[in-house]
């Protein structure tokens, strides 16, 4: 359809002006049409592939619309009868685990920040003392990122035993995956001219980092570090389930004992904690940047 259309316009123009065929504007017009055609070709390939993969996965997971509606009833029953109403009498005894979750997240963030700053400065193109060092630390960060915190947690629980220390360590190390990458990207976006200027005054590597890089890095450093606090609160609930302490551990304990009304209290507390922490970090971010 498209093809015949472009051919038609071509002949009409050709009739109006016989020499048109060789003119620059006609060549450019043909190039424009060719580009347009290859764009459509690309788009249809991408869409075709997407649809194919989606359909394949759909059948692969035995995805069944009907079962969603059937099971919905069972889910409502579980929520209305088992989970509700939450047993708030259990709440006071959950205050300590809640504090543990907070401690764990904050200690975890400090570990992540400490490691990530060092790794990122060595890994980013703008600040690394050596391209090979950069490659090594970039890969190290990717490696950590590819390791889910829950798997790291299982290893650490086996090594250090149950408890919040293990949780903090797991959060701290796995946080380097996200935070390190974010830092590297921010460091690579900074203005090279400012660094060049400090090189020109004869500043050493450490002086350039301290006086030229860190002032530029500060806003994104604060933003990403606070975001990591948010992520840690969420993650620590999951880590608790494998024995790393905090609210997650309490939640899992009640679920195992079929004390669903106590479990729902823990869920509500986790929910409130996440919202409160996000609110606080957002406020701090506003203040500092």
């Amino acid at each position: 359809m498209k093809n015949t259309l472009s051919l038609n316009t071509g002949t009409i123009e050709g009739k109006l002006n016989p020499n048109n065929e060789f003119s620059l504007s006609h060549k450019l017009y043909r190039k424009y049409k060719r580009n347009q055609k290859s764009k459509i070709y690309h788009l249809s390939t991408i869409w075709g592939f997407t649809i194919f993969v989606s359909l394949w996965s759909w059948f692969g997971t035995n995805f069944n619309m009907a079962s969603i509606f059937v099971s919905l009833g069972g889910m409502m029953e579980f929520i209305m009868i088992d989970l509700l109403p939450p047993n708030f009498a259990a709440a006071p005894r959950m205050m300590k685990p809640m504090l543990d979750t907070i401690y764990m997240s904050i200690v975890g963030v400090f570990i992540s920040i400490f490691l990530s700053v060092i790794f990122a400065i060595l890994a980013s193109k703008t600040t690394t003392p050596n391209p090979l060092v950069a490659k090594f630390f970039k890969n190290l960060i990717s490696l950590i990122r590819s390791l889910p915190s829950i798997i790291l947690g299982i290893f650490l629980v086996a090594t250090f035993g149950l408890g919040t220390f293990t949780g903090a360590l797991a959060l701290g190390i796995s946080g380097v995956g996200m935070l390190g990458k974010a830092y590297v990207e921010s460091l690579e976006e900074i203005d090279r001219g400012q660094i060049e200027a400090l090189q020109s005054v004869g500043a050493s590597w450490f002086q350039i980092i301290g006086q030229g890089v860190l002032p530029q890095f500060k806003p994104s450093f604060i933003a990403w570090s606070l975001y990591q606090v948010d992520l840690n609160i969420r993650d620590s609930a999951i880590l608790g389930m494998i024995g790393a302490g905090g609210l997650g551990l309490t939640l899992m304990g009640h679920v195992r004992l079929f004390q669903y009304q106590r479990a729902s209290t823990a869920i509500i507390l986790i929910f409130i904690l996440i919202i409160v922490v996000e609110y606080i970090t957002a406020k701090i971010r506003e203040r500092l940047i």
């Binding site: 400012q194 060049e196 200027a197 400090l198 500043a203 050493s204 450490f206 006086q211």
Partner: peptide, 26 residues
Amino acid sequence: NLVKRSETVKNVLHGNLGYMGSLKGG
């Protein structure tokens, strides 16, 4: 090529970095 987020006087002080120890300057 000033360090934009730093104070003006700090930027002038940067001119002295070449004469300072690495740690103190940094």
